[in-house]
C-alpha cells in the first residue's frame, strides 16, 4: 500500500461521474451505450484500488466477477453478431 490508492479511487470515481453525465447527455442513443464501457473499465479500476486501500481482498473477487460477467456479455454480443452477420446485416 502506497497511500495513493484511496485518493486515486476517488479520482477515478470523479472521472466516472463526469463521464457518466457526458454520456447520458448524448446526443445520440449510441453515446448512451458508452456507459457499458465506462462501468467495465472504471468500475473495475475503482474496486481493485479500494481493495488495496484496506477494503480487503474480497473486493478483488468482486472486481474479477464483474470483469468476467462483462467479458461473457461481450462475447455473447460478438457471437450473436456472428450468427446474424452470416445471414443478414443486422
Amino acid at each position: 500500500m502506497t497511500g495513493l490508492e484511496f485518493p486515486l479511487a476517488l479520482f477515478l470515481l470523479t472521472n466516472l461521474v463526469v463521464a457518466l453525465l457526458a454520456a447520458v447527455r448524448g446526443p445520440t442513443a449510441a453515446d448512451r451505450m458508452l456507459l457499458a464501457l465506462l462501468f467495465g473499465t472504471t468500475g473495475v479500476g475503482i474496486l481493485v484500488l479500494l481493495a488495496s486501500a484496506g477494503g480487503g481482498s474480497a473486493l478483488v473477487d468482486v472486481a474479477l466477477v464483474l470483469a468476467l460477467l462483462a467479458a461473457v456479455t461481450g462475447v455473447t454480443f460478438a457471437r450473436r453478431a456472428w450468427h446474424a452477420g452470416e445471414k443478414s446485416d443486422d
Binding site: L34, A36, L37, G40, A67, A70, A71, G74, A78, A81
Partner: peptide, 15 residues
C-alpha cells in the same frame, strides 16, 4: 477479461 469485454462492446456500439 476487461479487454475482451471492451473490444466486443466497442465494436457493438460502433455497429
Amino acid at each position: 477479461l476487461v479487454l475482451a469485454a471492451s473490444a466486443t462492446v466497442s465494436y457493438a456500439i460502433a455497429r
